[in-house]
């Protein structure tokens, strides 16, 4: 639905040329939540602004539903922008307008009649759960409520695409979760395509279907979230994945008790295996005891994954059998220590 072809953006400063976006090609499907992750300065903010031409590309092309955004100008660009909603990190609400008036603003721009505006505002207020706050001013709202107004405003003209520029980065974890739940809900209810940029991996994990990792203007890795999480290829991706999947402590920090016998094993779950009772099966089928040392299992939009450190105790033979069984079930079992 959205095609980026060899997209580039260079900024000219007095002394040098800075390439913020460097030859990026991506294809985003209709109805998916596509995440773009990168550290600040990776060019993701610039990239998302190229999608509605808030920034003008210096090379390449953006097409949305076959329409070339990069070549639009004037009135046709403004009309196209009405079909691309955008949500901002700092909300960017008009403080001089109430919640209802803020949501009505894009409808005013689209020259809708007053009656239509009022009806639509009420629908949107209900959709984002702000009933009763219509006449409040932004300064009277919490961060999460402000972002709900921002989302309602972005959806006002029934856009085809919603761009989220670090939409949750200014919010606390609990509020972040509620906003992410709202975005997932909107994606399912309206079938809306969402392009989301963030520097927080858990945002990608919670709601995105596919992810692209950006580093100094280039997309270094791209694919379905689960696949990228399980098999990160690039260094940058591994760093991001580690943020949310490694247990609190590094594996090297686990103290191996010399007195204990058995094996310390790291299990990595693939596909949806994390939801099945492997540990109890192992204990029942083999003459071993299992002690969980630590672990972390994460949910994504399309399955869960994670790793678990366990100590298996028993005769060497039984331990081997248990490990063989786990591997048969396509669980990666890496023996960290064996005594």
């Amino acid at each position: 639905m959205i095609q980026l072809k060899g997209l580039s953006k260079a900024f000219q400063t007095k002394t040098q040329t800075v390439t913020a976006v460097d030859n990026v090609s991506l294809s985003i499907d209709e109805g998916e939540i596509f995440g773009i992750i990168g550290y600040s300065g990776a060019g993701k903010s610039t990239l998302v602004r190229l999608l509605n031409k808030l920034e003008t590309a210096t090379g390449g092309e953006v097409t949305i539903e076959g329409e070339s955004i990069t070549s639009l100008k004037g009135q046709s660009l403004r009309s196209a922008r009405q079909e691309i909603g955008m949500v901002f990190q700092h909300f960017n609400l008009l403080w001089s307008r109430t919640v209802a008036e803020n949501i009505a603003f894009p409808l005013e721009i689209a020259k809708q009649s007053k009656q239509k505006r009022n009806e639509r505002v009420q629908e949107l207020v209900n959709l984002v759960g702000l009933e009763g706050r219509e006449d409040s001013y932004p300064s009277q709202l919490s961060g999460g409520q402000k972002q709900r107004v921002g989302i309602a405003r972005a959806l006002a003209n029934n856009p085809k695409v919603l761009l989220c520029d670090e939409a949750t980065s200014a919010l606390d974890p609990k509020t972040t979760d509620s906003i992410l739940a709202l975005l997932t809900d909107i994606n399912k209810k309206l079938g809306l395509t969402i392009v989301l940029i963030t520097h927080e991996m858990h945002v990608i994990r919670k709601i995105c279907h596919r992810v692209a990792v950006m580093e100094s203007g280039r997309v270094v890795e791209e694919g379905p979230v689960l696949q990228v999480f399980r098999n990160p290829r690039e260094h940058m991706t591994k760093e991001f994945v580690r943020q949310i999947t490694e247990p609190e402590e590094d594996a090297s920090e686990i103290v191996f008790d010399e007195e204990e016998n058995g094996a310390v094993v790291q299990l990595k779950f693939l596909e949806n295996k994390a939801e099945q009772p492997f540990i109890s099966k192992v204990i029942r089928q083999f003459d071993v005891d299992v002690n969980i040392i630590q672990g972390k299992i994460s949910q994504t939009q399309r399955g869960s994954y994670g790793s678990l450190f366990i100590r298996i105790k028993g005769s060497s033979e039984e331990i081997d059998k248990a490990l063989a069984y786990l591997r048969e079930e396509e669980i990666e079992a890496e023996v960290m220590e064996r005594a």
Binding site: L54, S79, R81, Q82, N92, L93
Partner: peptide, 14 residues
């Protein structure tokens, strides 16, 4: 706020 102006441009305001 420059962000508010950017938001208005993103909405297609003239």
């Amino acid at each position: 706020d420059k962000g508010v102006i950017e938001a208005s441009q993103a909405m297609g305001a003239s």
